[in-house]
Amino acid sequence: MAKVIGGVFTSHVPAIGGAIHRGAQNEPYWKPFFDAWPPVREWLGEQVPDVVIMFYNDHGLNFFLDKMPTFAIGAAAQYRNEDEGWGLPPFPVPPGHPELSWAIIEKLVAEEFDITTCQDMLVDHAASIPLALAWPDREAPVKIVPIAINTVQHPLPSAKRCLALGRAVGKALAEWQGDETIMVMGTGGLSHQLDGERAGFMNPEYDLFCMDNLSADPDALTRHSVHEIVELSGTQGVEILNWIAARGALGDKVHEVSRSYHIPISNTAAAVMVLETEAARAAGNAGAEKTAELA
């Protein structure tokens, strides 16, 4: 049976991609953000996931306003990252897992989510940068199932609905008969606002509220309406919806493994967190005991 180990939650600011391409990870401006990643990679090294369920939002690479799905599930064998308008070299994108995609699609529709399915799908920086951070300098050694949430054109789905979507994905993963080790990623945020006279707005207090509650009480994040989240977190801070959905897929009980919060990266309050499930914790402890025995 498949094992769900937990999730990596991270900001996905395009400038991070630029910093990676320039090799700027150790510059004073960037170091505090990139320093969040060695503990994440250590955890990935222990847990060795082979599937990533990627909760993210598209920023105008795959989806335009002609057709804007609220929830879109990738069901392709291959995905691509392409030029998003700034001429940056695309990041490698690992292959898809169509069988698992369709199992998730079946479950979501059975659970009465009216989703869009995509057999041909570009994935933008919101998916490619988190993978490049987790597995630098190579194509991530995983298969992916991208789940795109509309955070661009209002009305957006509520936080409550996103959490429920994630929980339904979690049910699909629990029923999946494969033997994969599965993790989720939730990308975007935290507080930031690119547009309007309030551009540059951040809200550490709200971000801390989100990070503090994400593991033990994610429902706390659903008490705000989308409008209230915009007010608290900024017009693009609503990307927290991706985190909320990803968290939903992990079940009731998770443990916080690592956390980093740094202001600013570009116009954004940047955060990186790892949450692990009970199953992963048990495996990690077993691994640690084995190491201790050997020592």
Binding site: F64, L65, G85, Q153, H154, D195, V230, E231, T235
Partner: peptide
């Protein structure tokens, strides 16, 4: 919300041509 513009249906209708042009800039 002061200084904040919600991109809703009205904006999406009004801005369609401009946004469509900008979307085309994904291609060099």
């Amino acid at each position: 919300i002061p200084g904040t513009h919600i991109f809703d249906g009205a904006a999406a209708r009004k801005g369609y041509a401009l946004n469509a042009m900008c979307f085309s800039f994904n291609e060099a």
